[in-house]
Simulated assay, not measured.
Amino acid sequence: MTEDMTGAPRELGSQWYDHEAGPLVRPYAMTGGRTKSGPAGVRFDLIALVTLDPGAPATEGVPLGPEHLALIDLCRKETQSVAELSAGADLPVGVVRVLLGDLLELGCVTVSRPVPPAQLPDERILREVIDGLRAL
């Protein structure tokens, strides 16, 4: 037994277990200490949309962790943003980005970005179209 900061006795190894939350796993353990996500040039913004690739190669022989499999299961249901995946898997966004990079390199998922606001049609044009349709 050791003592914590308050002087109360504590069992050895108990700092890795929270009785309310269960065992604690540090984020760097889930990513193997990596902080960079995926191939160069690919950014996983919070609003980037992740879709399970239906033509993805089989992952039976690939060593995927439980966190990878959780992300695959979440994407299997529907296309989700990086932020939604982070919340759904209960993982930090940085960890999700690294894990998605792994899945992207394996060809399991595809990533797309929503249309930037600068490329959307001008509101004035949309109003003219609506007015024209109403006139019909």
Rank of each mutant, 00 (worst) to 15 (best):
A8R: 04
S37R: 00
R113K: 12
R127K: 15
V50N: 02
D102R: 05
I47N: 13
T110I: 05
S37E: 00
G32E: 02
T6P: 00
G41D: 02
T110S: 11
Q15G: 00
R134D: 15
A29Y: 01
R76A: 12
T51R: 09
L120P: 08
A87M: 12
P63R: 13
D102Y: 05
P63S: 11
T6H: 02
I47W: 08
S37V: 00
G107K: 07
R124Q: 14
A58I: 02
V62G: 05
S81T: 13
P116D: 11
P63L: 09
H68P: 07
S81N: 04
A89V: 08
R124K: 15
P116Y: 09
L103H: 07
L103N: 09
L126I: 14
G55V: 01
L74C: 11
C75W: 04
R43Y: 04
L74A: 13
T59R: 04
L136Y: 12
E3I: 02
V62I: 14
V82C: 10
G33F: 01
G38S: 01
G65R: 14
R127I: 14
I125Y: 14
R127T: 15
R76N: 07
L24A: 09
I125W: 13
L100R: 07
G33N: 00
H19N: 04
R10Q: 04
R76C: 06
D73P: 02
